[in-house]
Design a protein around this nucleic acid. Structure first.
Length: 627
DNA sequence: CTAGGGTTAG
């Protein structure tokens, strides 16, 4: 496009081309014009030609007509562009080619920006930066600023756009800023950090524009979607600084942020506070808080919030009830959950697929497979098509109920329904096979997974390892343990627990201890019961001292051994006539609030009475008294 | 896109 055409286009779209002729004359002075230094108003343009004598300098003749002045400035702008494009380090020399009155003429600035942004956005940014280092330089007019900002937004050059705004030489009007911010918020690919930075920048830098509440709320919502509560708080802080007070939606977003950070008390306090003022956040936010309290088993708060919702005219919906049912099921109150579920239907709510799935899962987990199956049929009867979640729940139920044939039937049915297998469904079936001791089939299934495009994960390996350990097949279990590493996976505590158990069981206590060492090196803390296994194991192979040492270590680390472990150790100590340790352990047994097994008690009394060296009738009495 | 919820080992 030729310069002329550009200029022409410019005039057509923006009838007021040259701020120099308009801004200073606008009767209702726009906010923009008031920000343009007075020296750039038309009256201030020097009337006498520049006579500094620098060669090639273009000057400005104040006596010419407006039209010719305009043409001259336009001509200069064109030359400024040529220089900027042609010379790598134009910044240092531009002022020696043009007089400031021309170079910093508002029309010139706008034209240069427009010409540059049509050719090279990077150069227009550099030009803005250069302008910003000259306090006398005027900002571009709102239209030019807007089109530059849009051009940058088109290229998703968000950071560059922010830089442009920060120069203070790019000052689009409110509408342009708003649509820019909206694009920034809606754009999924852009970093949320930039969004927050932009909003904060715009609200603090551009005093002519106040960010509307809708933008604050949208950006809060956007930050929440990516779980970026840090951004939520930053936004809220900027919002407060801007003097904008939030509405019910804002409160809802903050409540959600508190929920994500598990600060339930803060969320609750905020909800109470705003609802007192008559602001009732949306059902989503309150439901999320209810869901958290429900998961925590804090049903007092759940019912309180339900009342608050209803009183505020925000009716709990199926999502709310689903989260309550889930919480009840997870906290051993499946029966109550089921009651609410059935009441829901009576009260005209239609439980959806997720609610059915939650309820069926709760019933399955408590072994109520008949009820679960009836609910499954009811769900299908209502025309709800089970998805992968639903299938996995019921399949898992039958696996745990050791009804593998029904589980497999459902698994096949799921496939026929066009629902593809997943890591979840595979792991579930593998666990079912392991539970039944069908290790070969389980292993086969795991080996088939990659052919289906599913890579076994640490859960797959843990399940298989546990399966083999339960069978006492340590060799296979160890093989899988090594395979896990070779597949680039990281073991978890659950990888080790069954291995330690089986090694201790078969008397390989030292190998078990070695594994515990490995765990610590991987920053994994063994379960307390793994220590019990080790003490048991040492007792089993007759290494009483080692068993004793390990138990003492547990006690020193505040790890509570099981009652059975201590009783077994007592038997072991008494068989080996280690009376002082025996008394020590006995003492600890009582301190931990445990009782002596009857059989162990008889054994100890018998041993202590026979032991001529101790003559400890007193101690025997003590034992009997404590019983 | 017009929200938000459910499944595997321990």
């Amino acid at each position: 496009m030729s310069i002329k055409a550009f200029v022409h286009l410019n005039r057509r779209i923006y009838p007021v081309v040259s701020p120099v002729f308009t801004l200073s004359r606008t009767t209702s002075a726009t906010v923009i014009s008031s920000r343009i230094p007075a020296s750039f108003a038309v009256e201030a343009v020097p009337t006498a030609p520049y006579t500094t004598g620098v060669e090639g300098r273009v000057d400005y003749d104040g006596d010419r007509s407006n039209e010719s002045r305009y043409r001259q400035v336009a001509e200069s702008a064109k030359r400024v562009c040529e220089i900027i494009i042609a010379r790598p380090r134009w910044e240092s020399s531009l002022l020696s080619h043009f007089s400031p009155s021309v170079l910093f003429h508002p029309t010139c600035v706008c034209q240069v920006l427009r010409l540059l942004s049509s050719k090279n956005l990077m150069l227009s940014l550099r030009y803005l930066l250069w302008l910003s280092s000259h306090p006398d330089a005027p900002p571009a007019d709102p239209e030019t600023s807007a089109s530059l900002l849009y051009a940058l937004a088109d290229m998703r050059a968000w950071k560059a756009a922010l830089l442009a705004i920060r120069t203070m030489k790019c000052q689009p009007d409110s509408r342009a800023l708003e649509s820019f911010l909206l694009r920034l918020i809606v754009n999924e690919r852009c970093a949320r950090d930039v969004m927050v930075e932009a909003i904060a920048l715009v609200s603090t830098h551009l005093t002519h524009y106040s960010v509307p509440l809708s933008i604050w709320n949208s950006s809060l919502s956007s930050s929440l979607r990516s779980k970026r509560t840090d951004l939520v708080w930053r936004l809220y802080e900027s919002m407060m600084q801007a003097g904008v007070s939030g509405d019910a939606s804002t409160a809802g977003y903050l409540i959600q942020a508190f929920c994500i950070e598990n600060k339930l008390d803060d969320a609750y306090r905020l909800l109470r506070e705003v609802s007192m003022k008559g602001l009732i956040p949306d059902a989503i936010s309150i439901t999320k808080l209810i869901a958290e309290f429900s998961k925590d088993g804090n049903f007092g708060k759940v019912s309180e919030l339900l009342h608050l919702m209803i009183a505020g005219g925000c009716m709990p919906d199926i999502f709310t009830y689903q989260s309550i049912i889930q919480g009840l099921c997870e906290n051993g109150k499946v029966h109550d959950g089921f009651r609410i579920f059935n009441n829901l239907k009576l009260r005209g709510y239609d439980p959806d697929l997720v609610t059915y799935t939650t309820m069926i899962d709760g019933l399955c987990k408590t072994g109520k497979m008949v009820v679960a199956w009836n609910l499954w049929l009811e769900m299908i009867g209502k025309g709800l098509k089970p998805n992968a979640y639903a299938y996995n729940v019921i399949i898992n139920g039958y696996c745990k109920a050791r009804d593998l044939s029904r589980a497999q039937n459902l698994y096949n049915e799921m496939g026929s329904a066009g629902l593809s297998e997943s890591i979840m469904s595979c792991n579930t079936m593998i666990a079912g096979l392991c539970m039944e001791g069908r290790m070969e089939e389980a292993l086969n299934m795991s080996e088939e997974m990659p052919n289906k495009g599913i890579e076994p994960d640490v859960i797959t390996y843990n399940t298989l390892i546990q399966g083999f350990c339960n069978e006492g097949n340590t060799t296979e279990a160890k093989k899988l343990y090594r395979k896990l590493f070779s597949m680039g996976l990281k073991p978890s505590v659950s990888t080790y627990t069954p291995l330690i158990w089986t090694l201790c069981n078969e008397g390989n206590v030292l190998d078990a201890v070695e594994l515990i060492k490995c765990m610590k090196e991987e920053n994994l803390e063994p379960l307390v019961c793994s220590n019990d296994f080790v003490v048991d194991g040492f007792c089993k192979v007759g290494k009483v001292e080692e068993a004793m040492a390990w138990l003492v270590n547990m006690l020193e680390n505040n790890l509570k051994p099981k009652k059975g472990t201590i009783n077994k150790l007592l038997v072991c100590l008494s068989k080996n006539h280690i009376v002082d340790d025996l008394l020590l352990v006995l003492n600890n047994l009582f301190k931990l609030g445990y009782t002596l097994d009857m059989s162990v008690c008889y054994l100890l009394v018998d041993r202590l009475c026979r032991d001529t060296q101790t003559q400890s009738t007193l101690q025997v009495e003590e034992i009997l008294l404590n019983k």
